[in-house]
């Protein structure tokens, strides 16, 4: 992993909701061109972390740097303009707009707007299912298709880093497999991917490097292939060691 530089760096990040501290000194390094995964259960702080990276929450202390530029505390749309975007948990699609319009909205930023036809075409070729339905309202899509549209929309913004939050939540295994295949293709095309998952095995399988979060802290990290799955699982489930 040392051959590529890091693109997104999180340093000693602390986040509070009022009196409640949600993140404790979280540090991470997302390497360029890799798939990094964050594994954690509900309440582990991973969504808080993502929301803070995306400027939805403000950090109490610590920094988030993208290509050596501090982006912590910036407005979400500015962070997106700087090259990070997220396909959030649940739905971020525009229900009362067509699939095509949803994707065209991805090309909102000036640099993408110029190439909007090309970028939307790229998204369609990655997700051919969406092309078939391009004139339909997004509200008519199935759960899996919504997830794909959400990712496709994020790709059209032509980001350097794409964050995918819980993309497998509530989906059938066949569809999950399909979506992970797409993630691989996206990464192969040169995009840095940050996956966030609850499922240990799947995350380790589909990523290059992993961080395991428990109760707002990073408790384990390592090259995905080298991390012993059982130990990750016990950390994850809080058996003995970390509870």
């Amino acid at each position: 992993m040392s051959d590529t530089g890091s693109i997104l760096k999180i340093d000693n990040l602390n986040v509070h909701y009022g009196d409640f501290q949600a993140l404790y000194d979280v540090s991470m390094e997302i390497k360029k061109g890799r798939v990094t995964s964050i594994i954690g259960s509900n309440g582990s702080g991973k969504t808080t972390l993502l929301n803070t990276v995306m400027g939805i929450n403000k950090p109490t202390s610590g920094s988030i740097t993208l290509n050596d530029k501090d982006i912590s505390g910036m407005r979400t749309s500015k962070i997106v303009a700087d090259g990070v975007t997220m396909s959030p948990e649940g739905s971020s699609i525009f229900e009362d707009m067509t699939i095509k319009e949803n994707l065209l909205m991805g090309a909102y930023l000036p640099h993408a707007r110029k190439r909007k036809t090309e970028l939307v075409e790229k998204a369609f070729s990655l997700f051919p299912d969406l092309r078939e339905k391009s004139g339909q309202l997004a509200s008519l899509l199935s759960g899996g298709q919504r997830q794909m549209l959400s990712i496709a929309k994020a790709i059209v913004t032509d980001p350097q880093v794409i964050i995918c939050d819980e993309i497998s939540l509530g989906l059938a295994p066949v569809i999950i497999k399909d979506i992970y295949k797409k993630i691989k293709e996206i990464n192969a095309a040169g995009m840095t991917v940050l996956l966030v998952e609850q499922e240990v095995k799947r995350s380790l399988k589909h990523s290059d490097y992993s961080y395991i979060m428990v109760k707002g802290r990073v408790v384990m990290e390592g090259v995905s292939g080298e991390l012993p799955e059982e130990e990750v699982s016990s950390a994850y489930f809080g058996i003995n060691k970390y509870a």
């Binding site: 975007t85 525009f94 065209l104 909205m105 913004t157």
Partner: peptide, 24 residues
């Protein structure tokens, strides 16, 4: 128009629009 579309997108899902770089 594209401008109108971004207005509709903001109305439909504000966070979704913000995540595409729209200053809502």
């Amino acid at each position: 128009t594209y401008f109108g579309m971004s207005i509709r997108a903001t109305a439909s899902n504000r966070m979704g629009a913000e995540l595409l770089g729209v200053n809502t």
